[in-house]
Amino acid sequence: MLSESAQPKDRPTMRDVAALAGVGIKTVSRVVNGVSTVAPELVERVRSAADKLGYRPNLTAANLRRSGGRTNTIGLLLEDIGNPFSSAVFRAVEDYARDRSVLVLAASLDENPQRERELTRKLIDRRVDGLIIMPAAQDYRYVLSEQQAGMSFVFVDRLPTPLLADAIVSDNRGGARTAVEHLLRTRRRRVAYFGDDMAIPTAAERFAGFTDALAAAGLVPDDRMVRHGLRTAEQARRAANDLLAGDPPEAIFTSQNLVTVGVVEALHERDLQHDVAIVGFDDIPFAAVLQPGITVMAQDPAAVGRKAVSRLFDRMNGDQSPPAVHTVLTRLIVRGSGELRLPE
């Protein structure tokens, strides 16, 4: 409990500044808003008083009084800002918005639909001008009333159901198929799969790409070599060690960056990194300096972020065109692990 002397004090107001500076409230308001006709001597008195009191203007209230009620803030809700993909999306959105004097308020969802709804509501209550969301929920009809009230939305990485706003996604299924086809060119046929929870749309799409590539080669997935529901590098490491302890697969496709990290750790622990080929979906730190380097199907999270924030600004500025899906292509980065040849 705070002591009486430590109780939080009310923030100083414009009236407090006016009293200390010996001027009227209108003069303080004109100084705060940068009106150029205020006499320099009065400007100095107001600024000096504001500094002594620690006064900060209420920018939200000021913006709401302006035409259109803009607050020059947007919300960004991502799976996990600590994840390299999410953090790259965040940085691209932040850079774009900063160039336009707009502040980004970001938070992590942790694949929790209830958390998503709560954070969405809190950001809307704070009068953000628009929202970019990496979906965690299954049903997005809850945003309809907000859209009708003028709120702009853009979704990233996954499609909302139903499609009520623009969505910016990577080519998950096509990229996964290309990655597995690349592994199959090494003549390896026993290919394992390590991936995220199949309830996550991107995980389901990447597993579909995995099975597409096998089917085109006349193969079917071996259920003994398929591992779903892996959310962390440690979970993936344990699952990989369990599989590698028996009859190791000839190749592995990992469908998420943290999963790739865990599987690569297990391969090195068992000294199998030169025997079992691997291609991961999405790039990972230090992939190029390992031996062998880790071949990946890389997304372009910066492009996803730029496209998302660009579409959001278009919507905030009045674009009324029907919502659309915008796909950002993936690319194969060859580094060695996916090109290991079977012994003759």
Score class of each variant (00 low, 15 high):
P57M: 08
A137T: 04
L312M: 00
I278W: 04
I252H: 05
L342K: 14
S36L: 11
T13L: 06
R11W: 08
S101K: 15
I200K: 07
A149L: 06
A106W: 00
L219N: 02
I278D: 01
P285F: 09
A288N: 14
D282E: 15
V220C: 05
D247M: 12
N83Y: 13
Q114H: 12
V279N: 04
E269K: 14
P301F: 07
N83T: 08
G218R: 09
P160K: 05
E344A: 14
I284W: 06
R177M: 01
R30V: 00
A176V: 00
E94R: 12
A165L: 09
Q147E: 09
R238H: 13
A203E: 02
V180C: 07
G218F: 04
G175L: 01
L258Y: 00
A165I: 04
I168N: 08
A213T: 03
R45N: 09
D196A: 13
S86I: 07
V309A: 05
D314M: 08
R187S: 15
A192Q: 07
D166H: 08
E116S: 05
A167C: 10
G130Y: 07
A204Q: 14
P162N: 05
E146M: 09
V334N: 02
V17A: 04
A216V: 05
A239G: 12
R15N: 13
R121Q: 15
P292V: 11
L144C: 03
G54C: 01
D51G: 06
N58T: 11
D271I: 04
P84C: 13
P323W: 02
P8Y: 06
N112F: 10
D242Q: 15
A213W: 05
H182I: 05
V261P: 03
S321R: 15
R331M: 00
D129R: 03
D223I: 10
F85M: 12
P8Q: 08
I200C: 08
V289I: 15
Q291I: 05
L184A: 10
V156T: 12
T37K: 15
P249Q: 10
M1W: 09
E79D: 12
K52H: 01
D223Y: 02
R311Q: 12
A149E: 03
Y55A: 03
N58P: 13
G150R: 08
V104W: 07
L329Y: 02
G69V: 10
R56I: 07
I278C: 09
P160R: 01
I132N: 06
R70Y: 03
Q235G: 12
V104P: 01
Q299G: 03
N72E: 11
R315M: 03
L123D: 07
R187E: 14
E265K: 15
R47S: 11
G34E: 10
A208S: 11
K26N: 14
V325A: 07
P301Y: 06
G246K: 13
N72L: 10
S29A: 15
R70V: 06
L144W: 00
G318V: 07
G75I: 02
I252S: 03
M198S: 13
K9C: 01
T232H: 10
E205G: 00
L119G: 01
A217Q: 12
D10P: 14
L243N: 05
L184H: 11
Q7T: 11
